[in-house]
Simulated assay, not measured.
Amino acid sequence: MSNNNNFIENSPLTSIIILTHNALRFTKECIFSIFQYTKEFYELILIDNGSTDGTHEFLKSLPKARMIVNQQNKGFSGGCNQGISIAKGENIVLLNNDTVVTEGWLTRLLWWINHDHSIGIVGPRSNVIVPHQAINPVPYRRVKQMQTFASEWSKNHNKQGYEVDYLSGLCMAFKKSLIDIIGGFDEQFFPGYFEDADFCLRAKICEKKLWVANDVYIHHYGSRSFHINRKLQSEIIQENSRKFFHKWKMNNLDEIAKTVEREKPFNRERHYFPI
């Protein structure tokens, strides 16, 4: 549960799910930022995908965190599905381990899905993210400056947001009830990339909106688990994009709206992914 004893009274439980695969320094910074800036009642669920850099030992040291240790890398989809399957929260947040959260981040994300029930999934603005969620360039160079920027940005864009065709998986918030409808993440997209677009597309087929909370900014270092091998990263993106476009009979991401209309209504046999 939360290390922060000042959580908002009577707030429903939120399950924050973080996958790790090495990159210990970034994982520490991410988790400590959650401890510092999260006022909601939450549980921390940590899925370690075969780390070899001391991540496992660090995660074990965290008070009251729930942990699953995979001897082999189950990928982003597999790890997320494991986390979701044991989550106790009414709300689910998937968060990359190379992010740094900011003051009010969860309060603002949850506000959107609680005040507009047509919104299925909500994501933040960030620096390293898909173009329609990106703020570039950013005016900071250090984390302390980033927090100041994020605070000012949130105040200046309070309760502003907009609908998009897909959201980045670096941070997604949704009701656990969405999983009952559309299922979890498609594990053919291994080890990562395009599973988030697939999840989003299935939510849209269910008439759920995908929403960018323009009043939430989260810093992202960017693909730290892949940094050791850029060639491998490129090959994985290429292969998973091929799988995604083949699955949905699409040529590019500009065809999402057309594809959603073609696929409606939601067909559980075709569109649901069991976890």
Rank of each mutant, 00 (worst) to 15 (best):
H56S: 14
H56F: 13
H56M: 12
E57K: 08
E57V: 01
E57Y: 06
E57R: 04
E57A: 07
E57H: 05
F58I: 01
F58K: 00
F58L: 02
F58T: 01
F58M: 01
F58E: 02
F58N: 03
L59C: 07
K60E: 11
K60V: 02
S61V: 00
S61N: 02
L62G: 02
L62P: 08
L62R: 01
L62E: 01
P63N: 08
P63H: 04
P63L: 00
P63D: 04
P63T: 00
P63M: 00
K64A: 00
K64N: 11
K64F: 04
A65N: 07
A65S: 14
A65L: 02
A65V: 04
A65K: 06
R66N: 08
R66H: 09
M67F: 10
M67V: 10
M67I: 13
I68G: 07
I68P: 07
I68D: 08
I68N: 10
I68F: 12
V69L: 14
V69P: 12
V69K: 13
V69R: 13
V69Y: 15
V69S: 14
V69G: 11
V69I: 14
N70R: 14
N70K: 12
N70Q: 14
Q71S: 13
Q72I: 13
N73H: 15
N73P: 15
N73V: 12
N73M: 12
N73K: 13
K74V: 15
K74F: 12
K74E: 13
G75K: 08
G75C: 11
G75P: 15
G75W: 10
G75A: 09
S77W: 06
S77N: 08
S77T: 08
S77V: 05
G78P: 15
G78W: 07
G78A: 07
G79Y: 08
G79D: 04
C80T: 00
C80M: 10
N81D: 03
N81P: 10
N81E: 01
Q82G: 00
G83W: 05
G83K: 06
I84L: 13
S85N: 06
S85Y: 02
S85Q: 05
S85F: 00
I86N: 01
I86D: 01
A87Y: 02
A87V: 00
A87W: 04
A87C: 03
A87M: 02
A87H: 06
K88S: 10
K88E: 05
K88F: 00
K88M: 03
G89M: 08
E90W: 05
E90K: 14
N91A: 07
N91W: 09
N91M: 06
I92K: 10
V93T: 12
V93D: 03
V93H: 07
L94M: 08
L94K: 01
L95A: 05
L95V: 02
L95S: 04
L95T: 04
N96S: 10
N96G: 13
N97D: 15
N97I: 02
D98T: 10
T99A: 15
T99C: 15
T99P: 00
T99M: 15
T99S: 14
V100K: 09
V100Q: 11
V100H: 09
V100E: 09
V100G: 01
V101T: 12
V101A: 09
V101I: 14
V101F: 05
T102S: 15
E103F: 14
E103G: 10
